[in-house]
Computed example of a mutant assay.
Amino acid sequence: MLTVSAHLPAAEVAQEFFATVTLEAGERRLRRRSLRLSTGEDILLDFPATITLDDGDGLELSDGRLVGIKAAREPLYEVTGKNQAHLVRLAWHIGNRHLPAQLEGERLLIRRDHVIREMLVGLGARVCDVEAPFSPEHGAYHGHSHGTENHALRLQR
């Protein structure tokens, strides 16, 4: 089985992907895992610490080929407010419940949960069902391979 030798942030990918792997948000946070590529091949990812793979990132294989990461479409709620101040208030209520959320300029994306939907509607939000790639904001204490260092994570073998 081929192994992953490096993780490259999307901004540092300089070559074409020979294959891709599509993963949901929860599946893109990993340390050691076997992944099935779009070609049907399996690869082994085994990093020294947990990382989060983002849409467009690359995984360099031991043979030099590059695999692309695709964020899977997931069933989500699109949450919008009456204005920016209202949206910030809605975001606070979501965060107060420790729910993963993708923060965008005019909307929030969260996983579907009928109880949370009722709460948000009760607070005056507009909540719509959508299917989209989900890249929730990471917590303040979340270790992320991209960090302030802007280089590929390479494995020492």
Rank of each mutant, 00 (worst) to 15 (best):
E74W: 11
E74F: 13
E74M: 14
P75E: 11
L76K: 02
Y77D: 03
Y77E: 02
Y77W: 06
Y77S: 06
T80A: 07
G81D: 07
K82Q: 13
K82E: 14
Q84R: 09
Q84N: 08
Q84Y: 11
Q84C: 10
H86K: 03
R89T: 13
R89P: 14
R89E: 15
L90P: 06
L90R: 05
W92S: 10
H93D: 01
H93N: 01
H93M: 04
I94M: 06
G95W: 00
N96R: 06
R97N: 05
R97V: 02
R97P: 00
R97Q: 08
H98W: 05
A101G: 03
Q102G: 13
Q102L: 12
Q102R: 08
L103S: 13
L103F: 12
L103Q: 09
E104H: 09
E104A: 13
G105I: 05
R107T: 01
L108G: 00
L108N: 01
L109H: 03
I110V: 08
R111Y: 09
R111S: 11
R112S: 08
R112M: 10
D113A: 15
V115Y: 07
V115D: 05
I116N: 08
E118Y: 12
E118S: 15
M119Q: 08
M119P: 04
G122W: 13
G122C: 13
L123Q: 02
G124S: 10
G124H: 08
R126S: 15
R126I: 14
R126K: 15
R126G: 15
R126Q: 14
R126H: 15
V127Y: 04
C128Y: 00
D129I: 10
D129R: 06
D129Q: 05
V130H: 04
V130A: 11
V130M: 08
